[in-house]
Computed example of a mutant assay.
Amino acid sequence: MNENRLAFIIIVGVLAFVGILWYAFENPALNPRLENESYTIVRKWDMPIELNEISGIRWISEDKIAAVQDEEGIIFIYNLKTNLVEKKISFGKSGDYEAITTADSIAYVMESSGLLFEVENYLSNNFETTEYQLPFSGRNNMESVVADTSNNRLLFAVKDIDPNSKDYKGIYAFDLETKKSNSLPVLKIPLDAPIFKSKDADDDIDLFSNFFPSDIAIHPKTGHFYILEGKNPQVLIMDSNGKLLKLHKLYEESFPQPEGITFASDGTLYISNEGKSGTANILEVIFDEDK
Rank of each mutant, 00 (worst) to 15 (best):
251 Y>H: 10
253 E>P: 02
178 T>A: 14
174 F>D: 10
237 I>H: 02
59 W>E: 02
65 I>T: 01
244 L>M: 00
247 L>E: 10
138 G>R: 08
276 K>F: 04
103 A>R: 15
289 E>Q: 04
172 Y>R: 03
97 Y>I: 14
10 I>V: 08
172 Y>T: 06
182 N>P: 07
118 E>K: 09
270 Y>V: 00
179 K>L: 10
9 I>Q: 04
79 N>S: 05
146 V>T: 14
265 S>R: 06
63 D>Y: 14
7 A>V: 13
201 A>R: 13
129 T>G: 01
36 N>W: 12
187 L>C: 15
237 I>D: 08
179 K>N: 10
258 P>D: 07
64 K>E: 11
12 V>M: 14
280 A>L: 00
116 L>C: 08
51 L>R: 05
90 S>E: 15
105 S>Y: 13
77 I>A: 10
250 L>N: 07
232 N>G: 06
230 G>C: 07
265 S>K: 03
259 E>V: 04
67 A>V: 03
12 V>F: 09
31 N>R: 15
35 E>R: 13
88 K>E: 11
185 P>F: 01
199 K>D: 14
85 V>D: 12
186 V>A: 03
147 A>K: 10
209 S>H: 11
142 M>E: 02
189 I>Y: 04
137 S>H: 00
291 K>R: 14
283 L>I: 00
217 A>C: 01
288 D>W: 03
143 E>Q: 08
28 P>V: 06
235 V>Q: 02
285 V>M: 00
30 L>Q: 00
102 T>M: 09
104 D>L: 12
224 H>T: 06
105 S>F: 04
282 I>W: 04
5 R>C: 06
186 V>K: 12
241 N>A: 11
233 P>H: 00
116 L>F: 05
271 I>V: 04
102 T>K: 15
159 K>E: 01
115 L>Q: 10
81 K>R: 12
10 I>Q: 11
214 S>P: 05
203 D>N: 11
256 P>K: 01
214 S>D: 06
278 G>T: 07
155 L>V: 05
204 D>K: 08
11 I>A: 06
62 E>A: 05
18 V>P: 08
111 E>F: 11
280 A>M: 07
21 L>W: 11
134 L>P: 10
43 R>A: 11
91 F>A: 10
217 A>N: 01
224 H>R: 15
239 D>C: 11
89 I>W: 00
87 K>F: 09
65 I>N: 03
143 E>S: 09
231 K>E: 13
16 A>P: 08
218 I>L: 07
7 A>W: 14
259 E>L: 02
151 N>M: 07
196 F>Q: 07
24 A>W: 13
57 I>F: 00
114 G>I: 07
143 E>D: 07
107 A>N: 02
226 Y>R: 03
141 N>M: 03
179 K>G: 08
157 A>G: 07
99 A>L: 03
18 V>Y: 10
122 Y>D: 06
128 E>Y: 13
237 I>T: 11
1 M>R: 13
76 F>C: 02
51 L>P: 06
256 P>R: 06
33 R>D: 10
224 H>C: 09
291 K>G: 11
138 G>F: 03
269 L>N: 11
119 V>A: 04
191 L>C: 01
89 I>M: 04
161 I>Y: 13
81 K>F: 05
260 G>W: 13
207 L>K: 15
246 K>V: 03
273 N>R: 01
78 Y>V: 13
